[in-house]
Design a protein around this nucleic acid. Structure first.
Lengths: 343, 343
DNA sequence: AGCGCGTTGGAGAGCGCTCTCCCGCCATGC
DNA sequence: GCATGGCGGGAGAGCGCTCTCCAACGCGCT
């Protein structure tokens, strides 16, 4: 066990050359079925496992990819950045989708955080060292400098959402405007007449799209003005925003809230103000995250196929890694309405 | 950029040998300061980054470790295992602690899930291939076969909690009984007289310890019988357990709930039954997770220094990796009481 | 029979790095 | 004066693998 067997050992055991064993393992070229069988048995007998370092030294491929969670420039103080990020169930779904695609291929993501300039530099250096063949990147904020750095370093990378500035990099995204329209159509169909919305942080493109998509759809239904309070995607901000909405617009009968976590925060506030959900006020969330089912009542929401998108992101990355000439692509997923009890 | 510079290139640029450059980079032996300076400049000029594959081929060290999240044997159906795990904020704190320790050392964890026998085999094979020097492992269930597999394969590993069966492997854990005692003391000090508890799944050692620790402490205060309903650490199970507790023991004035997530589920149930928290019923959770602050009212809870524990786990692993002769150790952390509004 | 071609296996050259030797130099001791 | 030893540097042998050559061989064709 101390000295693990090498190709040479297997070759000797099977009575063939190193090259032949290598060919059997990698399934390259034709090898006589009889010999193949002998080799396989020798591999099993010796308990051989290929040494990845040696392999990647010659193939110049590591068979690993980085899963980078990137924030904007602010250094977070007491509460570490990573801890917050993980608390968001959204991230779990991304990881799950990425792992779901990668694991059958025997590859596992390297988890990295890039919230500061130093950390970003570390990510780049790490990739350049050949620790991973590329990166999938999920930014928690727009204005993230990392995508640009990756492109400049010619490192294969795929983003989770459309980058703020147009740079030549592949990404997957969801049709935010279409999702917001689904919410608007549903609220109107339910008979809501005085509708408001709680948006995400408006420096994030996704938030803007959800808001403008919602407003446009409502305008098409004949409601040109939709009040909006801005949140920041956290539970606490959902509470605060709902509180403000109720005080500024007491008569509302429907709210579209830009993510489920904020909606989860908003529900108790509504209840506390004596509004029944969905009786008095209908609530539609966004994401179909675990917060949607954890809320009481469970949320009607816009389903974001996050796992599928994450898997596609991994697929795109692998395509870029396999063929660096691969053109930059973006894939947009269509959201769908999930009706539960809140609207 | 296409062909990245090698040691040889740097050596040529600096007018020295490969060995000297290597010595400068690894800070080994004495190198003339003047030459050192020349070499450093050459490194900067060429934009050299050491190739990790080549290095680990000779050092037989990868400078990577695996962060394995391991469940028991059940194959989860529709909803992927990983997705659920990540939804638990506890996991985020572990990841955060591990990253906090590892990142300054330039190493990043490889994320792996091991929920099925196949996945476990993959983890072992992956480590044996030399993709990582060792593993830190957090199990979501006891009876996890992976620790034993790791020990059998002589792979360096550290666990997050004490293994179910006693096997020679290092771990970190929290003093569950001491934490439960803190909760008991606090409830009694508040004046609670009819106290009950909601436990975690009783096949998990931690749940047993929290329950028995709580009962023992209450007994010491003169309350020999404490009703208990078993949950499974999810929000939904907290709701159900609270519901049952209220129907079976209507007069309770204090509850110790074995984790914050279940407590978060229990609070709305109490409210719905007309019980004010903490006025009518005091609630104490466990973990001090993000669920504690997200709950309304915020939870009084037992703080589990998860990040510190995770960091320590990483430290222990590195010690084992650096010196395989390192004795097996366990480090137990003391929990503390965090008083918020629920008790 | 002789030729070319496709197929299968072996030999061996590295991939980029570390690390053990070894050598030359200068300061030191008798 | 010469042996001694420490120190700074170079040479070169691999680490375990892949992959390009090349040799050997069987086959169908002229």
């Amino acid at each position: 066990m101390s000295a693990s067997p090498t190709l040479e050992d297997v070759a000797r055991a099977a009575g063939v050359s190193r090259a032949t064993v290598s060919r059997v393992i990698n399934g390259i070229r034709n090898v006589d079925p009889t010999i193949q069988e002998t080799v396989r048995r020798a591999i099993a007998d010796t308990g051989y496992v290929p040494n990845r370092a040696a392999r990647s030294l010659v193939t110049r491929r590591t068979g690993a990819i980085a899963l980078v969670v990137s924030g904007a420039g602010e250094e977070s103080g007491e509460n570490p950045f990573h801890s917050q990020v993980f608390a968001d169930p959204f991230f779990g779904r991304v990881a799950s989708g990425v792992v779901g695609f990668l694991r059958p291929r025997g590859i596992h993501p390297i988890l990295m955080f890039a919230e500061t300039a130093e950390a970003r530099a570390q990510v780049i250096a790490y990739l350049r060292q050949g620790n991973a063949d590329g990166a999938v990147l999920v930014s928690t904020q727009s204005e993230d400098p990392l995508p640009r750095l990756l492109v400049d370093a010619a490192l294969p990378a795929v983003l989770f959402a459309r980058p703020a500035e147009p740079i030549p990099i592949s990404y997957v995204d969801v049709a935010h405007r279409a999702g917001a329209k689904l919410a608007a159509d549903h609220l109107v169909a339910r008979g809501c007449r005085r509708v408001a919305t709680i948006s995400g942080p408006l420096d994030v493109a996704a938030s803007q799209d959800r808001l403008s998509g919602f407003r446009d759809a409502m305008a098409a239904h004949g409601y040109p003005y939709i009040p909006c309070v801005e949140g920041n995607f956290t539970l606490g901000s959902g509470e605060a925003a709902m509180e403000r909405l109720l005080s500024e617009h007491p008569g509302i009968d429907g709210v579209f809230i830009a993510n489920d976590l904020m909606a989860q925060g908003a529900l108790p506030v509504l209840r506390h103000h004596g509004c029944r959900v969905p009786g008095d006020v209908a609530v539609v969330g966004f994401d179909d995250s675990s917060a949607a089912t954890a809320s009481r009542p469970p949320l009607t929401t816009i389903r974001h196929p996050v796992e599928d998108m994450a898997a596609e992101m991994a697929r795109l990355l692998m395509a870029h890694v396999d063929d660096p000439g691969q053109p930059v692509t973006s894939i947009i997923f269509e959201p769908s309405l999930v009706v539960r009890d809140s609207a």
